[in-house]
């Protein structure tokens, strides 16, 4: 959890990335009524990398990742996940694809009527059907320890603080060991210590399970720590794509205001 460790893993992880793309988005377009949210987005997520997506509020970052898992239908353009076009899959194929993708919702989206334990068991029982009761219990305890909330097992979501909900929701996402992780603002609203822990956890997940991740964040500290590559969205298009250094050296006023 200390910074030394995370910096080290930051240096190590890029070497593991290959050039194989797990998500490939071409000329994605999405509007709601009159409002054009995404005009022309083209980007790739490579195998094993952490891609940080930046952009100001309302720039369509959440919409982008919802299109990736098929929660929203894009108007035009192509989204390939593991070389399968998300837009033309039927329900069953989409379900199979979604089992490989972990999605952390910006709002947490914990099931209000279930305890923390039931929340974590829900995706486990439905995605990994061959686990025994004992394995399920072990897995649940393990991820809860990872997010530092082992004692919250029998609480209801309404009894948790905002930051705790966020962490439980992160635990629920990683419990099924997805191959692709989509984090929607994993550290927003958390204190600096917990934020650092979450950043470290994101890196740990990447290393341990070889996941490829898209991380949406406003938290530059988290972005610097976790990113192998960054993308900035503005006006429905990709404004800049590159390494952390490219962003820090940029003279574009939108980007500099993020990085000062």
């Amino acid at each position: 959890m200390n910074t030394e460790q995370t910096e080290q893993s930051d240096i190590n992880s890029p070497s593991k990335t290959t050039n194989e793309a797990v998500i490939e988005i071409k000329n994605l377009k999405k509007s709601f009524g009159q409002q054009e949210v995404l005009k022309n987005v083209t980007l790739k997520l490579l195998k094993g990398e952490n891609l940080v997506v930046l952009g100001k509020s309302g720039s369509g970052k959440s919409v982008l990742i919802k299109c990736i898992v098929g929660l929203l239908k894009s108007d035009s353009g192509k989204i390939d996940v593991f070389n399968k076009n998300v837009n033309i899959l039927n329900r069953k194929e989409l379900d199979e694809l979604r089992q490989k993708i972990g999605f952390l919702f910006q709002s947490g989206a914990l099931y209000d009527s279930m305890t923390v334990k039931q929340n974590l068991e829900f995706p486990l029982r439905r995605i990994k059907k061959d686990l025994t009761e004992k394995e399920i219990e072990e897995k649940v305890t393990e991820v809860l320890e990872n997010v530092g909330l082992a004692d919250a097992l029998h609480k209801m979501p309404s009894q948790l603080s905002g930051g705790m909900r966020k962490r439980i929701s992160l635990a629920r996402t990683i419990v099924v060991d997805p191959m692709i992780m989509l984090y929607d603002e994993p550290t927003t609203g958390l204190d600096p210590v917990t934020s650092d822990e979450i950043s470290a956890l994101i890196i740990e997940v990447q290393k341990k399970y070889k996941t490829s991740s898209i991380i949406i964040t406003h938290d530059i500290k988290c972005a610097r720590k976790t990113a192998n590559r960054m993308v900035m969205l503005a006006e429905g298009e990709v404004l800049l794509e590159g390494k952390t250094a490219d962003f820090e050296n940029s003279t574009n006023p939108i980007i500099t205001s993020f990085f000062q």
Partner: peptide
């Protein structure tokens, strides 16, 4: 459940 994205969350855990 709809407003707080719980229904979406179910959908992505292939339920």
């Amino acid at each position: 459940m709809k407003v707080t994205e719980q229904i979406d969350a179910m959908e992505v855990s292939s339920t």
